[in-house]
Amino acid sequence: MKKKEGSAALLDTGFFHADPHPGNLIRTPDGKLAILDFGNVLDLGLVTKLTDDQKYGMIEAIAHLIHRDYGAIVKDFVKLGFIPEGVNLEPILPVLAKVFDQALEGGGAKNINFQELASDLAQITFDYPFRIPPYFALIIRAIGVLEGIALVGDPDFAIVEEAYPYIAQKTISERA
C-alpha cells in the first residue's frame, strides 16, 4: 500500500487497518508505508473497506466541521449511519454543536483530539438517538493509534491540519 499524506489513504481507497501500531508497520526504503501484520486482524474485523458513500460522506463531514457548518454535519451523520433516518434533528443539533465547539476550541480543526471527540460523541448516545457505527469505531481506533505515533515524532502534529489540503482538493473535485 502506498504511503499517502494524512488520512488520504483511507479516504482514497477506503481500505484501512485498525491496528496500525509500530509493530505492524514499516517504512520501505523508497518511503512507502507497508502493513506487515494481517494475521488475526482479518478474523477480528480490524481490516475493512469503506463504501464510496462512506468515504464521500466523511470527506463532506470533515469539510463541514472545518467550516463549523453544524447543520450540514447533522445531515452528514444521518447519511453516515450515526443518526437513524427520520429522527428529528432539531434537539440533536445544539448538542453536537457544543461537542464540536469544544473540540475546535483553542486553535480550530487543527487541534482536534480524535480520542476525546469520540468519547464526547459516545456520551450523546445515552440521551439521543445517536450511535457510533462499527466502521467508525475502527476508524477512531486507527486514527488514535496513528496520531499517537505521529505526536511522538512531532509534538505539534495535527491530523486535521495535515488532511485539510486533501479534503479541500477532494471537496472541490467532487463538486466540479
Rank of each mutant, 00 (worst) to 15 (best):
G71M: 03
F38E: 02
G81D: 11
K3S: 13
E90L: 14
L33V: 13
A163I: 14
I132L: 13
L50P: 04
L33M: 14
Y56E: 15
K32G: 10
A122L: 15
D76P: 11
L89D: 01
T51K: 15
N24A: 07
F16E: 02
Y128L: 09
K98T: 00
A97C: 01
F38P: 12
G86I: 08
I112F: 01
G45M: 06
H17G: 03
M58H: 06
F15L: 15
F114H: 09
P155S: 08
L93C: 00
Y135Q: 14
I62D: 12
A61E: 06
Y135R: 09
H21I: 01
K4G: 11
Q123H: 03
V47C: 05
K3V: 09
A9C: 10
A9K: 14
I73V: 09
P94Q: 01
G153I: 02
F15K: 15
P133G: 06
P91V: 02
N88M: 06
P20M: 03
D37E: 08
L11F: 13
G108D: 11
K2Q: 06
L138N: 14
R175Q: 11
P29V: 07
D154P: 00
P165Q: 10
T171V: 15
G153K: 08
R27D: 04
L104I: 01
R175N: 13
R131S: 13
L96H: 00
I83H: 09
G31A: 05
A163S: 15
G71N: 02
P22A: 10
L146K: 12
F16H: 02
G81Y: 07
A142P: 11
A9W: 11
A158I: 06
G45L: 02
G31W: 03
P84Y: 02
G153W: 03
P134Y: 11
A158C: 12
L50N: 11
F114M: 10
G71V: 09
P20K: 03
S119F: 05
D120N: 05
N24H: 01
G6H: 04
T125S: 10
G39Q: 07
F157Y: 15
A158Y: 04
P20C: 03
D120R: 04
A18I: 04
G23C: 04
N111G: 05
I167C: 10
N111D: 10
I159R: 04
E147H: 07
V74A: 14
P29C: 04
L65S: 10
